[in-house]
Design a protein around this nucleic acid. Sequence first.
RNA 1: CGGAAUGUAGCGCAGUCUGGUAGCGCACUUGUCUGGGGGGCAAGUGGUCGCGGGUUCAAAUCCCGCCAUUCCGACCA
Length: 570
Amino acid sequence: MRQSKLISRKHKEKPAEAQLISHIYLLRGGYMRPVANGIYSLLTPAKRIQQKIEAIIREEMNKIDGQEVQMPVVLPAELWQESGRWDSVQSELLRFKDRSRHDMLLAMTHEEGVVALARTEVTSYKDYPFMLYQIQTKFRDEARSRGGLIRVREFTMKDAYSFHTSMADLDQYYDRCAQAYHKIFSRCGVPEVVSIQSDNGMMGGKIAHEYQLLCHDGEDKVVVCPTCQTYANSEVASCSFPAEPEPLLPLEKIETPNVKTIEELEAFTKLPATKMAKMVFYTTTAGETIAVLVRGDVEVNECKLQKLLRSEISFATDDEVVKTGAVPGFACAIGLTCRVFVDYSVANGYNMLCGANQEGWHMRNFNALRDISQAEVVDIATVKEGDICPKCGKSLELSRGIEVGNIFKLGDKYTRVMHMTYTDEKGQEQTPIMGCYGIGVGRLLASVIEARHDDYGPIWPLSIAPWQVQINAMGLEKPGIRETAEKIYAGLEAAGIETLFDDRGLSAGVQFAEADLMGIPLRLIVAPRALEQGMVEYKIRGTDEKGLVPVEQVQTFVEKWLAEEMKKYI
RNA sequence: CGGAAUGUAGCGCAGUCUGGUAGCGCACUUGUCUGGGGGGCAAGUGGUCGCGGGUUCAAAUCCCGCCAUUCCGACCA
């Protein structure tokens, strides 16, 4: 492609609205243009990258027996009413009516769509297992899109759905898919993407993993164990709370005038927060007030708690707290009329300090399991930096990540309610179980920039670069320059090598700056000084590697270099 | 949905406090000199100042309402 014909305006200055590096370079490099909040048009360079990512995904999905299909973006409400998500998903689902006042939706995911398709196509156990996938536009009316392509409302997604006759078969396929995912990210030039244990949100099912690119500007919090190399989303991460055993001492009231918070208690009693039990009260959407007991230095993980209660929660008001029999500020779990959840951080502790349910008083030597009859011991702690890994006992670290893909074991959540069945060997009707597997294509594209860039622009891995080679000609009107550049360009194009030829005759500075924004791996520079010796200069983007190649050997050099470089991404 | 900020040419911004006929840099067009990291000179093009209403002889500027965008938070397969 000739750059003189490329519609892709470059900008010197950082656009005011962009903060993330990928967002900045995508706009500055003329990869995309904003159309509305969280909605973008992609220009040719980004579209080419996206197509390459899609091709890699397609290959790997096909290798694990995936069958590519295409379902509609617009679905009738009935399908989502069948699954129950028409009501359970809120404003994130964009709904509208067609001309005959029929309720419709823009699909944000396709469990319903694929079950509707598969249940009429597949009725015998002989067809199992199978996997259907598509690469297609999704729309999610996000409350807050941000970060360019990292979090958008309209985006391209690969979504895959597998169907099985047994859990064991799903387990096996799930692992196969996990392997394919690692291959995809590795081939796209981000092998460091890690698989982590995750929350399953509105998807249902039990087991779920996210594929996270760990990076400073990620929006998800990830708990990392550097020792045993395990990762978990902070929404579900656990840690252990070992404590030295102590003889259980009798409860003892102590006077603590006006001492309410953990900090005040630490100052007053000279005890560390790890020896205190903290009570927090929440109210569910059904109006039930519950008490939660965590160690003084631990924060309640509300995500875990909501999952446990199967309800959204909010902090209880003082009135609601009083109704349970507790005294705000001096609450004690003993003798409350509500459910009491005790986190392991407290359950594993000995002789802790807690409230006395009396204004101005606390109690020593509280032992949750001994002292509370209705205690429900659960894991509801938020992991923080330095907490203990439950697997290996070493310190955990906190990191940030971008979720570029995810996989779920859905079980029969959708197949059951949507009455998908097959006939087994014995002629019995059975309900299949499902797995689903997503990759955000645009988000992956942006994530590669987050992981592969320098101060001048993206450094595209050859496997997904918009073009493989860039030709820059210095002083186009100087003797031999245009002819040589044109000849090299024609040769590369004829060999099927994707080449971006800067034929605009601009100054070196402009050409190099814009070439850096395009991030093409191999750059050929045709310039007078080298050409006098019959040489063309080459430069590898993102490295210091450069050198001279005789003009007549350029074609061979490029072909060899590309073949060698491409080995990194197979 | 809460909190904050912003909206003036394709991009980045000044002008608003103190009302008086729209500015700068980049980009773009033409010419010319340059030619290895966003180059110089000269001449140009492009804006109903987010939208609507009000105050005033006069509004980008003051007042009211709306809309949009961004940031922080809530939320999020």
